[in-house]
């Protein structure tokens, strides 16, 4: 007989005991260890995902802040640039203005110097001409010269236009001369003036004044209007000519 029934029963018992033993000492501990590990790994993965999510959020936040910062920086740069440009413009304008002012001042001072120089040259020329003239006149002074002078004066009176005559006619005339006029000369001049008269009005009798400063000449003043013949008038022409040369 191949089947021993006692062995069969005993083996069934043995097998059931082995099932219990292995469940107790093999399957349960091993499965628990695997479960615990899997749970821990799942927790770690979940934590890692949370961390990743948080990191992504933080990254987004940082990027947003960065963009904001860039914008602010660009705005500040633009503002600073604009300010600098404006400041530069202001400084340039100021500098230009100052430079213009300086140039003008310099030109003014140059002109002043030129004028002073002209003045000095003129004065010296005048002085020399006066000296020369004075010397010549002093040397030549005699009745005929004076007579000649008055003749010239009277001739110039005759050359006046009607308007000028009308202007001279109003007011009281005065005749100024470097030397005292004789009564005959005064009469000649008075007569010449009366000849100028236009219409019914006559000239008032002129007053005669001797003025040594009126160099070698004679002049007629009627309320500010002046008719003169003197060396000074020629000197004026000379002055004009010298000034033209200096420019």
């Amino acid at each position: 007989m191949l089947i021993d029934w006692f062995t069969v029963v005993a083996q069934i018992a043995n097998f059931l005991i082995l099932v219990w033993l292995l469940k107790r000492f093999l399957y349960q501990p091993i499965l628990q260890a695997i479960d615990a590990r899997e749970k821990r790994i799942a927790t770690q993965i979940a934590e890692a995902q949370q961390t990743a999510t948080a990191a992504a959020q933080q990254q987004a936040e940082f990027q947003r802040k960065n963009a904001e910062f860039d914008q602010q920086r660009a705005a500040l740069f633009a503002e600073a640039n604009a300010t600098a440009q404006a400041e530069r413009q202001t400084l340039l304008t100021t500098a230009r203005t100052e430079a213009d002012a300086l140039r003008e001042k310099f030109q003014q001072s140059l002109q002043n110097e030129q004028r002073v120089l002209q003045q000095a040259i003129l004065q010296r020329t005048q002085q020399q001409i006066f000296d020369l003239t004075r010397k010549t006149l002093t040397d030549l002074a005699d009745t005929s010269l004076e007579q000649q002078m008055i003749k010239v004066f009277i001739r110039r009176l005759g050359e006046l236009s009607d308007d000028e005559r009308a202007q001279l006619q109003i007011g009281s005339p005065s005749v100024r001369s470097a030397f005292a006029l004789t009564s005959a000369q005064q009469t000649d001049i008075t007569a010449a003036l009366q000849n100028l008269a236009v219409g019914a009005n006559l000239f008032a009798r002129p007053s005669f004044i001797t003025d040594p400063n009126c160099i070698s000449g004679i002049e007629l003043n009627v309320d500010g209007h002046k008719l003169a013949w003197s060396v000074a008038s020629y000197l004026n022409d000379l002055e004009q000519s010298v000034a033209g040369e200096l420019k």
């Binding site: 292995l22 260890a33 590990r37």
Partner: peptide, 16 residues
């Protein structure tokens, strides 16, 4: 089987 299981599973590690 039993002793082998006990020997191995008495010091089970729950880590990697």
């Amino acid at each position: 089987l039993t002793i082998g299981s006990i020997l191995v599973t008495r010091n089970l590690s729950h880590h990697e």
